[in-house]
Design a binder for these strands. Structure first.
Length: 556
RNA sequence: GGGGGUGUAGCUCAGUGGUAGAGCAACGGCCUUUUAAGCCGUGGGUCCUGGGUUCGAGCCCCAGCACCCUCACCA
């Protein structure tokens, strides 16, 4: 028996011991509970003396995360959704029967208690309990109490453990929820309808990416998981739904990185009678809403938390550690951002840099940025190709516009740290975008960049069916085998019925959450990022097969 | 796919070619005001996997697997 199995055995014995005491180790409804955060607020007005108890009764439920037992008195620290609270349990208060139950409890168990609020000698807020209910017995021990779960692989594979041991992780996902709600509220307030369009699509389009393929058995039909909802949402514009948005899970069969997950969330919206300038305001509006819902409070709290830890280290006579901690956690940046927030600005920290989201964001022409950072004129293709050579970009046999954009990505994007709208892209790489009225080589498209990362992409939408058809038929060299230019006859038919002029926009929700929560990787803001299954859990893994065969052989 | 890194007890991590280590958790004991509780004692290992070098490998070499970082594709 391994150590792991032995530890589990011990816990199972305690679970069974609870049953022998007539206690259901998996509990049931536990009503009328108060959140520990609420109790903490209430206690501030109670003015309880150290060592004293109030008359205030409360019921609390949570997971035991710390435990200090001294003979006939125990202190347990339980965590609930937002906070934590110390519970005081004595044999005298509980009585012999309940004390026996307490003796079977350990770290990781979830309990409900009833008691009165008080403070210990050291003034720690404590719920002195007279009743104890077991709500869920943990038969696997939680991770080490000080460091929590830090193994990145395990954190993603067992996100549930990550969540209950690391409050900061819970906080990021609460912020994610708040940001999505704020984005939705903003759009609904602007008279947008929220819609849902197909995830399973017979023709994929709306972006340049390789799709996942699947099959419907009854119709005997191959289908693609959507890479974008764009072409369906535009059909709704034809249908007279003038302002629509979808919070869309998209699937792209591409590489995985700190900025890419094969399934990701995008908010995509279309507004009739608008153009890409209106879409810039929509980006500012959505980001401002998300900032207000999450980051506004996060920044000063984080600054204060870093300061507190530095003060603690300094007090422990470890000034060097305090200095290192401050640097690693970008204390200066957080303090500056917190000042900005106090002054009413939308300032945050990302990768150690202070980012200011306060609208209006900088608006820069694609061609101007190319001139500034690459030193070439966009329409001087010889100069652009020469620059590509300098940058080590392989551009042989590739279309001019593709090379221009490769040079742009290589030489410009990483300079765009503060929120910037880059507008007026080379037309050939924008098949779904309306052309500039005065220059056919330019498309009315912008991308929003922050911290060198593309956050969103928007167009004044192309609504001329003839040009759209041409664009579908024209294939650029150098864009890879799969491009967004996959012919969709029905979409052309829709445009032929007449689509109003419109602005359209997609904003990457995961990346927005990364920026608003200072998360370095997209996996930090996706609850269950895609991972290869652990070997022992994966029935398709050849090694697993071998193991099974060996086992069968033994048994036979 | 290329390059770099990591993989040792349930968790967090040390480990110098020669008997496998610490802290936390667990188990036994003491303990009614603890704050990562403390004190005394005990148990716990496929050192990622498979080869190789060596008298001897956690450590050196080769191959593989998983994860992280990075580059490429992509948003």
């Amino acid at each position: 028996m391994t150590e792991q199995e032995r530890l589990k055995e011990q816990r199972i014995k305690r679970r069974d011991a609870l049953r022998e005491l007539g206690v259901d180790p998996y509990g049931g409804r536990f009503a009328d509970i108060t959140a520990t955060e609420t109790l903490r607020e209430r206690a501030t007005s109670l003015d309880i003396e150290p060592g004293g108890r109030s008359e205030v009764k409360a019921r609390v439920a949570g997971r035991i995360m710390l435990q200090r037992v001294m003979g006939k008195l125990a202190f347990l620290t339980v965590h609930d959704s937002l906070g934590k609270l110390q519970l005081g349990l004595s044999k005298a208060d509980l009585g012999d029967d309940q004390w026996k139950i307490l003796k079977q409890l350990e770290l990781g168990d979830t309990i409900g208690v009833e008691g009165v609020l008080g403070r210990t000698k050291t003034a720690e807020l404590t719920l002195w309990c007279n009743k104890l209910t077991v709500l869920s017995k943990a038969v696997i021990a939680p991770p080490e109490k000080w460091h929590g779960l830090t193994d990145v692989d395990l954190r993603y594979r067992r996100r549930y453990v990550d969540l209950f041991t690391n409050p900061d992780v819970r906080s990021v996902f609460r912020m994610r929820s708040a940001i999505i709600h704020a984005v939705r509220d903003y759009l609904v307030n602007e008279s947008y309808y929220e819609v849902e369009t197909p995830v399973l699509q017979p023709i994929y389009g709306g972006a340049a990416a390789r799709p996942f393929t699947t099959h419907h058995n009854t119709l005997d039909m191959d289908l693609f998981l959507r890479i974008s909802p764009e072409l369906y949402l535009k059909r709704l514009l034809v249908g007279g739904m003038e302002r629509v948005f979808e919070i869309s899970r998209n699937f792209r069969n591409e590489g995985i990185s700190t900025k890419h997950n094969p399934e990701f969330t995008m908010v995509e919206l279309y507004e009739a009678y608008a153009d890409y300038n209106v879409m810039m305001e929509r980006v500012e509006g959505m980001v401002s809403a998300g900032f207000g819902a999450a980051t506004k409070d996060f920044i000063p709290a984080r600054a204060a938390a870093i300061e507190k830890e530095c003060a603690r280290l300094t007090e422990e006579d470890r000034p060097d550690d305090a200095k290192t901690f401050a640097e690693e956690n970008h204390l200066d940046a957080y303090q500056e951002a917190a000042k900005g927030v106090t002054a009413g600005r939308l300032t945050t920290v990302y990768h150690g840099a202070v980012i200011d989201f306060t609208p209006p964001w900088t608006r820069s022409k694609y061609a101007d940025l190319l001139r500034e950072h690459a030193g070439v004129e966009m329409n001087d293709i010889d100069a652009v190709r020469k620059k590509a050579d300098q940058l080590g970009i392989d551009h042989k046999g590739k279309d001019d516009a593709v090379v221009v954009n490769a040079v742009f990505e290589e030489s410009v994007e990483h300079h765009l740290v503060q929120p910037t709208f880059v507008y007026d892209y080379p037309a050939p790489i924008c098949p779904l975008t309306r052309r500039h009225p005065e220059d056919d080589a330019i498309a009315l498209r912008f991308e929003a960049f922050i911290s060198g990362m593309e956050l969103g992409n928007a167009y004044t939408e192309l609504n001329d069916p003839a040009i759209q058809k041409e664009n579908f038929e024209c294939k650029l060299q150098g864009e890879g085998d799969e491009t967004m230019a996959v012919m969709d006859e029905d979409f052309i038919t829709a445009l032929e019925y007449g689509m109003p002029p419109a602005g359209g926009l997609g904003v990457g929700i995961d990346r927005l959450v990364m920026l608003l929560t200072d998360s370095p990787s997209i996996r930090d803001v996706i609850l269950f990022p895609l991972q290869r299954p652990a070997k022992k859990d994966n029935p398709h893994n050849p090694d697993h097969q071998e193991l099974s065969d060996v086992k069968l052989g033994k048994d036979a």
